[in-house]
Structure formats: structure tokens, C-alpha cells
Write a protein that binds this DNA or RNA. Structure first.
Lengths: 211, 211
DNA sequence: TGTTTGACACCTAGGTGCTAACAT
DNA sequence: ATGTTAGCACCTAGGTGTCAAACA
């Protein structure tokens, strides 16, 4: 499943800097993702815009991504940039891996929660985040995004190819090469054994020398 | 750096099953590795034995491997097999990655520590494990091993090649193949372009059919 | 028709023993 | 002479977009 940010962010991963915690207090930090509205969307090419295309699909089980550095002291949290790059999304409503479940073609808002340890007794990926005095929740409207299963917009594709290390294979310099071609490039001067030199070899070599 | 177990264990990784904890209490579980004696060893081929070869090198900074599932409840610890397969060793006395530092050619005993949370204020990879009522330490004499930088014993080599998934490339079926040969095997029927079929191709093909 | 899925080649990241060169 | 190191090919494990086929 892929994500198309509409107002940017979410890729690169959402990252936050935290201040104002009690350095000696213990905290969880967590993220969940809630629907922005009750609509389903479709992408209209000629206007390059998302348009309402009916009502939202039925709600899915709420999931919470508990940041893997949890539990940690306020001191520890404040000393680092907290990144959510390990958060995983799925459109499989039966997911049992604790991933965050979303509908495709819907608009979502990520939320960051800072939860005092002494306040929360049983934080779990499959339970809603508690609310109250010991919990602070943050919304960043610029991180709203629309989910897709295939990219709707070539600029998003290029952004992710250019920025995501794992998509390096699709960057321009690596394009249009089959597996074999890439390999033979490495062994540029290798020739198969038990072969005799033929006319083609000389012309090839001469061309390479001339370049 | 490699490890040669003398009485077996340590590879596969040391794994323990824990019982008798208070299910609702929080615990750390940790491992450290202490010298068995004050000696340095060498391996004598003709007798296939480790022999004393002088006194031990000067002591190195003590390090502790805190199991990554720490902190967890007694209930959580007892419900799983606790594996130490992520523990890393080094012979670099200046290591600043928190790895466990050992001398080569010395004999060592791994120890497992179960530490009640309310007992330990500041557990750290670079501080010795505290001792007292809230800490239980376990030695398994069959896990004593001797450190090496190159294998001294072909049986150990074979054991590790056979059992460690990451050494699969050295198993018999994959041996004696260069990188290119392995690749060409995959593209068994591929022939370089712009080449004409020669006599050698026919004899090769006939041999393959005959086998 | 639009959307969704699964196989695929291509990457990152890092754990293996092998080997030749180096150190002591 | 023996012990150690660094580069290497070979793996595991898993994150990318692409593409063709399946889907609804």
C-alpha cells in the first residue's frame, strides 16, 4: 500500500521535536491516524484534484503505533528527534500484525500522542489511545493525506523515487537496465570461456577504443 | 571475530526459559561474559586440545548486554524463550558501541542475570551488573567457550556453516562457484548477443543432454 | 472503468566464512 | 611461526516502484 500526501509530509516520515516534558517522568509516545471526514475520494486528472466520490467505507478497527523507544524518560525523548518511519499501514481489515488499518481513497489525519506513564495502565496497539490529563494529542494539518493503491500523480512518484533510499533502483541512472545488463556491466571485460575470437569482437573493441 | 565453543552452545545462540518470577513485577534480563581463569590458551592440533599458553592479557572494560525486550513483566518473560542471538562481541578494547569486549584465545563463561526493576536504578551496557537481593545470576558451565579470530577446528567450521542461515553460501551445494558461475547458472540458456554458434556449443549441449 | 493484487527486479542493511596480506 | 585484519562473494531479511493480470 502506498500513501499520497496531499499537503506534503508523511514521506519522508513524520518527525517531531518535543519540549516541555518533565525530564524525570516516564512517557509513551504514540501515533494514530483518524479520518478527516466521512467521504471517499477519486482523483481527477484534468484538474489534478481529489474530488468527493461518495460516502466513506465502514469504519475499521482502531490501531495505535507505539513508538519503539517507549517507555522512556522525558529527558530521553526531548534529546532526540522522534521519527515515525517504522510505522506500517495496511488496507487489510483482518490484519493481526498490529499495523494501522486504513481504507484506500480516503483522507486521513495522523495524530501524535504523548502519554504519561503513571496515567496509562494498558497501552496496546489494538486499543484506542486513552484521553485525559496525562495525555497530550497533537494534530498537524499539513500532514493530512489521501490513501491510494496506485499512484495518481507522477510528481509524487518522482518525489518518492528521489528521496527514498529503497527506491534507488528506479532513479534515472539505474533505469532501463535489465538484471542481466546490470550484471554484464560489472563484468564489462569478461568473455565466455571456450569461445574463439570472432569478427564481432574486433569491431566492438575498436569502437570502444575510439570513444 | 568468531567464537569457538568448547563444550558446545553459544552457537546456536544461548537461549533460556525462565520460571518462578512474580508475574506482575518488572524485570531486566541481561548477560555478561566473565573470564574462567587467568590464562591464555593455544590450540594444539595433534591432540585437538586447548593448552595453557601463558597468563591472561590485561582486563578489559566490563560490558553488559541488556536483553532488548527489557523492561518487561515477569509474566511476559516467562511466556517466551529468551534468546541472546543479538549479543555482539568484539576484541576492540576501545569499542564505543556497547558491545561485549573479550580477549582472543581466552576462556570465558557467559552469565544470565535477572534483575528486579525496583532494585536497579541505573542499568547500563557500560556498568557492571549490580548484585544483591533483587538480582539472580545463573552460570551454565556447558556454555564455557574459547575465543578465536580464526577457526582452529574444522568441525566447528562445519557446524556453523550447517546451522547458521547467514553461512548458507558455504554449504556444499553452493561451494566452488565464483560469482559469475553462479550467475550464469541462473541464465543457463543465455548466450551473448552478436555471437555465432561454434563447435564448442554443440559438444557442450550434447554432454548436458547425456547426463 | 477504476482499482487492487501479486510476481518481479532492484535496492538497503547487515550477518557469514574465505583468503591474502599484514602484524607480532 | 602464529595470530589478526580487511576486502570479498555469498547469503538473510525486508523496503521500493513497475507491470500485467485480476477484480468489481
Amino acid at each position: 500500500m502506498m500513501i499520497t500526501p496531499v499537503f506534503l509530509r508523511m514521506f519522508p516520515a513524520m518527525r517531531v521535536k518535543i519540549t516541555g516534558l518533565d525530564p524525570h517522568q516516564q512517557y509513551y509516545i504514540a501515533m494514530d491516524i483518524v479520518p478527516v471526514d466521512n467521504k471517499r475520494y477519486r482523483y481527477v486528472y484534468h484538474s489534478s484534484k481529489w474530488m468527493v466520490a461518495g460516502n466513506a467505507d465502514s469504519p475499521v478497527p482502531p490501531r495505535v503505533y507505539i513508538h519503539p523507544d517507549s517507555l522512556a524518560s522525558g529527558d530521553t525523548w526531548m534529546r532526540q528527534v522522534v521519527s515515525f518511519d517504522k510505522l506500517k499501514l495496511t488496507n487489510n481489515e483482518l490484519d493481526d500484525q498490529g499495523h494501522i488499518i486504513l481504507h484506500s481513497m480516503h483522507k486521513y489525519q495522523p495524530r501524535v500522542h504523548v502519554i504519561r506513564k503513571d496515567f496509562s495502565s494498558d497501552l496496546s496497539p489494538t486499543k484506542p489511545v486513552p484521553s485525559g490529563d496525562g495525555v497530550k494529542t497533537f494534530n498537524f494539518p499539513e500532514t493530512v493525506f489521501t490513501t491510494v493503491t496506485a499512484y495518481q500523480n507522477q510528481q509524487i512518484t518522482r518525489l518518492k523515487i528521489d528521496r527514498n533510499p529503497f527506491a534507488k533502483g528506479f532513479r534515472d541512472s539505474g533505469r532501463n537496465r535489465t538484471g542481466l545488463e546490470a550484471i554484464m556491466e560489472t563484468y564489462a571485460f569478461w568473455r565466455p570461456p571456450v569461445r574463439t575470437l570472432t569478427f564481432e569482437d574486433f569491431t566492438t573493441m575498436q569502437k570502444q577504443q575510439g570513444e
